[in-house]
Simulated assay, not measured.
Amino acid sequence: MTRLPVRLRRFRANEDAVAAIEFAIVLPFMLLLCMGGVELGNALSINVKVTATVHTIADILSQNKCVTTSDVTGILNASSKVLSPYDVTKAVVTVSEVQPTGDNVTAKVIWSQSLNGAARTAGSTVTLPTSLTGVPTTSGLILGEATYAYTPNLGYTISGTVTLRDSYYLYPRQTNFVPTITSGSTPPVPTTSCPTS
C-alpha cells in the first residue's frame, strides 16, 4: 500500500508530453479563429464590392440626360461586373429615379430597373436617409441599390446566409431628371432632354 502514494507523486511530477496536451487543447480554438478570420475577410471584401457597385451604377446613370430601358439594362449588366470575381447571380442590383415629396421623409419612385431581382414599382415611395432632409422637390435623385446573399463556407449552420446591402443617392448632373423611355413613348417626366418619337 505504501507504493500507491509514491506512484501518485511520480505521476503528478511527470511532465512528459505536456506540450502535446496543451497543443491538443488549443488547436480547435486556433483553427476556429483562423477560419473565422478567412470568412470575415471574404464578407468584408464582398461588402466593399457591393458598395462600389451602387456607387458605379448611380454615378453612370447620373451623367445621362436621358436613357432607354435597354441603356439601363446594359449599365446594370456592366456595373454588376464590379462584383467580379464573386458570384454575380447572388447579387440583386437595382437603379431607380426618385423624386422627393417635400415631407423631408419620403420620395416617389419615377422609374426603376433591376438585375436579378424585382424593380421598385413606379409611384411607390422610398424613405430618404436623414442626410437628405430638405432636398428640393424640383429635381430627381438617382438611387443605386445592391444586395448580396453571402453564405459562409464554414459556420453556415451558425449564421446562415448573410445579406450584405448598400444604397447610394446622387443628383443628376446634366438635367433635373433622367427619364427612361421605351421606343415610341413619351418620357414619364416632362423634360426637353429626352427626344420623343
Rank of each mutant, 00 (worst) to 15 (best):
S80V: 12
K81H: 12
G123R: 04
I110T: 05
I75W: 04
T125H: 03
K108S: 11
L115Y: 10
A78L: 08
K81N: 15
T125N: 15
Q99K: 14
G74Q: 07
T127F: 07
V93R: 00
A107I: 06
V95G: 06
L128F: 11
Q99M: 13
V109S: 01
T127P: 09
S84A: 14
R120P: 00
K81M: 10
S124Q: 05
T101Y: 04
A91I: 04
A122Q: 15
S79G: 15
V72F: 01
P100W: 02
R120V: 00
D71H: 13
G123F: 06
I110D: 02
T127E: 14
N77C: 02
V95K: 02
V105Y: 02
N77W: 02
S79F: 08
L115E: 02
D71I: 06
V95W: 05
V72Q: 01
V98T: 13
G74D: 09
V105T: 11
L128T: 09
P85R: 08
S96L: 13
V88I: 12
V105M: 04
T106K: 09
P100N: 02
W111K: 06
T127S: 13
V93L: 15
A122H: 02
D103K: 09
R120Q: 12
S79L: 09
L115Q: 13
L83S: 05
P85N: 10
D71M: 09
V98I: 14
S112V: 02
A91T: 07
T73W: 00
T89I: 09
S124L: 06
T73D: 15
G123D: 04
S84H: 07
T125L: 14
T73N: 14
V93G: 01
L128Y: 10
Q99N: 15
L115K: 14
S96Y: 11
T106L: 04
T89F: 05
V98C: 13
V126T: 09
V126P: 11
V88D: 11
V72T: 15
Y86W: 11
D71P: 12
A118R: 06
P100K: 00
T121Q: 08
D71K: 13
T125V: 15
E97Y: 04
K108L: 08
V95F: 04
S84M: 05
T125K: 11
V105D: 05
V109A: 00
V72G: 00
T127G: 04
S114K: 12
T106W: 06
Q113E: 15
V72E: 00
V98L: 10
T127Q: 14
A107C: 07
S80G: 06
A78V: 05
K81I: 01
V126K: 08
A107V: 06
D103F: 10
T127W: 06
E97P: 08
A91K: 06
E97N: 03
